[in-house]
Design a protein around this nucleic acid. Structure first.
Length: 910
DNA sequence: GAGTCAACTTAGAAGACGCTTC
DNA sequence: GAAGCGTCTTCTAAGTTGACTC
């Protein structure tokens, strides 16, 4: 039995094999297999681990996974102090002794807390420097701060380089100065903190707001200090400078520079203006007749509209889904009852929607063939109609609205086995829509002849409009866009909360480990669930209704979702959010294994809840006793960001930018795998992979020929370099014969083309074209080459070109080997990435400040890791705190220290 | 404490867009 | 300039969480 784990992880990481809903047998494959058609788990493991050197060619025939494993073992044994959090989860004995404190954390703690050997000296230095700094005239300080603020990381590149050079020359003086500044602001922050608490208490008697205050204290404290110095607190709206990334100039409210952000969780705005929502255009009948029982049918416009919803999906998985078909047909018939069709439609199987489908296809083609100008005109027309809805004015600031369009009618595309998939989503009328707007603002006009359900002025809500959809009765909202202050603040608070968890996580782990053995079943269940959420990034798992898809999370796991294989292997196999399959085969703590065995014990059977004495609210209530606002969800954010930074630490600082980026993407991928973020495989993926595989084989063939040339030229090399005699993997006699045949065919084609081209040229120049005899002679040369190849195959001897030397051939061999490695990595990367979606983790789970700091540290242009949308969404992370960037540029901080300072390292746990 | 609901975040699919290659 | 492909954007489904009610 092979435990499927990520060989990359030097710890008992929560990485797992993640698979779509496919037959189980497909995945229970030996991960050490070398077959080209590697099982996904293996490929993932290979890619995530394979670095340039990992895809070592000299070990070509050794299973890659095995190679990686052995490497991993070495890494494991190295006693690396920087072992990530999860590996420091102690073995049971250590747990008993309460050895949860991270080993090797002293240096880290020292960096953060200033408690290492030189700490006192440093403290003194810092204090002196800090005092010194306090004498700097205010105007100068403002200037100093000002030059750092508001610039993109890339803009600062040269400045950073200069700083680095300067600090090398002056023994990191720049660094010391920067630290001095940080220390000073920290001190200010500390002094201010009790005041802030008092103020907060006065403002809000509800002490539950504490975490929000700590959030602002952590992140805004320094900002507050800076603000106090530069007196720019009233800069409600600052103009973003156009950076060299080509981004447009725009108005951005830099809320992260504000001192007094509305943070009490009640009032979100004082004034709010917007233009309401945009309704989809009314249906215009196309008049194309579908067929019923081979007969053309004339439908009333309402019925035609619904039929068209289905027709547009012909060929898709939805249209093939029997539940989808059934629900659509039922709702369509209801619509048809209201109007008359020329032929009564009773049986779905007799319906032929192809004519409508073809009509849509033709329309698509028409659109495609429009000229550039026509397309542009259409786009401008659309923008003109939408413009007024695109922005809202919140407290006098212009903010982008996210989804101002009312969802158009259509067929509900429920995922997985949603019982209501295919049901008709009816057209939303203004009478169903509630508008939320400021009292002083003019309420938007509803479409002519209509009125709004309600117009309200709820200052505690961040939605601009809401309505209820008819299929599931769920509430839909119009919110501001991701770049808005509301969303940004909420995002930042989320990451601050995750950072805060690091202060508590050791205690939480210690406690749940103890509670795994508790007498009370409910407590043991809770502890076991916490273990699973923490270790495998499972979602909380609310219970679901019968009218929803049967998906589960941790608390809602059932008997059949967990298989136990002694001594301590657990196989999870269930459908999670969006009906994405979660399959993971893991080793667990022996007590967890025992508990799961008990929770599955008879009379429980399929259909029974594993944690029958636990639910998400009980779990979250318990978690919040450790830290205000701590819920199951926070563990996902915490572990994702933590894993990400740990993976970044593995990147060699001396690597090229391209290699660093490869490392960055791999780190991102690890997080995506951890969180089970999947995507569907693109249509052409198989073909693309086959092409890449062909390319690798062709390169190996070339290398084989070079090796043979070396041995022919210098037979003694066989003894000196026995690997020269090794057969290339993936190449066999049959393949070589076929390949050479193809090669010669291509060669002949080239000769013919060249011959024709030569003749054309000659004719152009008024000369006599070459004779057919010449062509024949040239082709005979290819025939000769083919015979030589055959001979080489038989003898294994390859005559090298004139002037070839051993050195040259060896250089050529090395080059070819490098090329093979690079192509293999590329192929593995592609294969691994085929069903892993990186964007979800980047958008939602990884603290953008880690990326920003990393880019800054290694001079990587930010746009290489964040596209324009992300740069806008995460603006707060780029400019919020000088220290993040400053830390990144200081030379005496290692990459490891850097990421620790980014705040996601468990080794700083208290 | 179970049930319900509002309000928000997280998620993958699909469509749009733009770059590269032939 | 058409095709192929990857990336970005939009859309909306599907989660989580906390408040409220009984």
């Amino acid at each position: 039995m092979t435990v499927t784990r990520f060989p990359t992880c030097t710890h008992d990481s929560p990485f797992h094999t993640t698979l779509r809903d496919k037959p189980k047998t497909t995945y229970k494959t030996n991960p050490t297999s070398t077959s080209v058609n590697l099982p996904l788990c293996t490929i993932r493991a290979l890619v995530s681990t394979a670095s340039k050197s990992d895809v070592s060619d000299s070990e070509d025939d050794v299973p890659l996974a095995s190679k990686i494993r052995s490497k991993e073992t070495i890494a494991d044994d190295s006693g690396d102090d920087d072992t990530p959090l999860m590996s420091r989860m102690p073995a049971p004995a250590a747990k008993k002794e309460g050895k949860y404190t991270a080993n090797g954390s002293s240096s880290t703690a020292a960096i953060t807390n200033g408690t290492n050997g030189n700490a006192d000296k440093r403290k003194k230095e810092v204090k002196e420097e800090s005092d010194e700094d306090s004498d700097v005239p205010l105007a100068k300080k403002i200037k100093k701060v000002g030059t750092m603020k508001g610039k993109s990381i890339k803009v600062e590149k040269d400045e950073t380089k200069a700083k680095k050079l300067s600090s090398i020359a002056k023994g990191s003086k720049a660094d010391t100065v920067a630290k001095r500044g940080r220390k000073k602001t920290d001190e200010v922050d500390e002094k201010d903190e009790p005041k802030k608490r008092r103020k907060a208490k006065t403002e809000d008697s509800d002490s539950e707001e504490q975490p929000k205050r700590s959030t602002s204290a952590a992140a805004k404290g320094k900002r507050v200090a800076i603000k106090t110095e530069d007196g720019a607190g009233d800069a409600k709206r600052s103009r973003k400078k156009k950076d060299d990334t080509g981004d447009e100039e725009d108005d951005t409210f830099k809320w992260w520079e504000e001192q007094n952000l509305a943070n009490d969780g009640t009032e979100k705005w004082k004034t709010l203006e917007h233009a309401g929502v945009m309704f989809p255009p009314p249906y215009i009948p196309h008049g194309v007749r579908m067929k019923y029982n081979d007969q053309e049918v004339e439908l009333a416009p309402e019925a035609e509209e619904v039929a068209s919803f289905f027709a547009a999906l012909l060929g898709s998985d939805h249209a093939k889904n029997p539940t989808f078909q059934k629900n659509f047909f039922k709702d369509w018939q209801e619509i048809m009852k209201k109007s008359k069709s020329s032929v009564p439609i009773q049986d779905f199987n007799k319906c032929d929607f192809t004519p409508i489908f073809e009509y849509f296809e033709a329309e698509k083609e028409k659109k495609k063939s429009m000229t550039r100008q026509e397309k542009q005109a259409q786009k401008e027309e659309k923008t003109a109609l939408e413009e007024k809805y695109m922005y809202a004015i919140v407290d006098g600031r212009k903010e982008k609205v996210g989804n101002f369009r009312i969802e158009p009618p259509g067929l509900f595309r429920g995922r997985g086995e949603h019982p209501k998939t295919g049901s008709l989503k009816k057209r939303v009328l203004p009478e169903q829509v509630t508008i939320n707007i400021g009292e002083s603002a003019k309420a938007p006009e509803p479409p002519a002849g209509h009125k709004w359900a309600k117009v309200i002025n709820d200052h505690t809500a961040t939605w601009l409009a809401t309505w209820k959809e008819n299929v599931n009765g769920s509430t839909k909202y119009v919110f501001l866009g991701a770049t808005s202050a509301w969303k940004g603040q909420s995002d930042m608070q989320k990451f601050e909360k995750a950072k805060e968890l690091k202060k508590h996580v050791d205690r939480i782990r210690r406690d749940y480990t103890t509670e795994l053995k508790d007498k009370m079943t409910a407590t043991r269940q809770r502890a076991t669930a916490m273990y699973l959420i923490d270790r495998f990034a499972l979602r909380a798992g609310n219970e679901k209704g019968d009218d929803e898809a049967d998906t589960v999370g941790c608390c809602s796991l059932r008997f059949e979702h967990v298989t136990l294989e002694p001594p301590n292997i657990v196989i999870f196999d269930f459908l999670g959010k969006d009906s994405i399959r979660y399959y993971n085969q893991v080793e667990v703590d022996s007590q967890v294994f025992k508990n799961l065995k008990i929770f599955k014990k008879a009379p429980k059977g399929p259909g029974d809840m594993l944690f029958d004495r636990l639910n998400t609210s009980m779990l979250n209530k318990h978690l919040s006793s450790y830290m205000k606002g701590l819920t199951a969800k926070v563990f996902r954010t915490y572990n994702a960001s933590h894993v990400f930074q740990e993976e970044l630490r593995k990147i060699d600082p001396n690597d090229s930018v391209a290699d660093k980026l490869l490392g960055y993407n791999r780190a991102n991928r690890q997080v995506a795998v951890l969180c089970n973020h999947q995507r569907s495989v693109s249509k052409g993926h198989g073909q693309q992979m086959a092409r890449m595989q062909d390319k690798i084989r062709a390169l190996k063939y070339d290398r084989m020929k070079i090796r043979q040339s070396i041995m022919t030229l210098e037979p003694k090399q066989k003894k000196r370099q026995p690997e020269l005699t090794e057969m290339e993997s993936d190449l066999d006699e049959d393949w070589i014969v076929e390949y050479e045949k193809q090669l010669m065919e291509k060669e002949r084609e080239k000769v013919r083309q060249k011959f024709e081209k030569d003749n054309e040229k000659l004719v152009e120049e008024g000369q006599k074209p070459l004779s057919e005899k010449e062509l024949k002679s040239r082709l005979q040369e290819v025939d000769q080459k083919e015979r030589e190849l055959e001979q080489e195959r038989k003898t294994g001897k390859v005559e090298s070109k004139k002037g070839s030397t051993l050195e040259r051939l060896e250089a050529l061999l090395e080059k070819k080997t490098e090329k093979i490695k690079a192509t293999k990595v590329q192929a593995l990367d592609k294969e691994e990435g085929k069903e892993t979606a990186l964007s979800t983790s980047k958008i939602n789970y990884i603290d953008p400040r880690i990326s920003a700091a990393w880019c800054h540290k290694f001079d990587i242009p930010l746009e290489k890791v964040f596209n324009r949308s992300l740069r806008e969404k995460f603006q707060w992370a780029m400019t919020i705190d000088e220290d993040w960037r400053w830390m990144a540029s200081s030379l005496d901080l290692s990459a490891n220290q850097l990421v620790r300072l980014a705040g996601f390292d468990s080794s700083t746990n208290q």
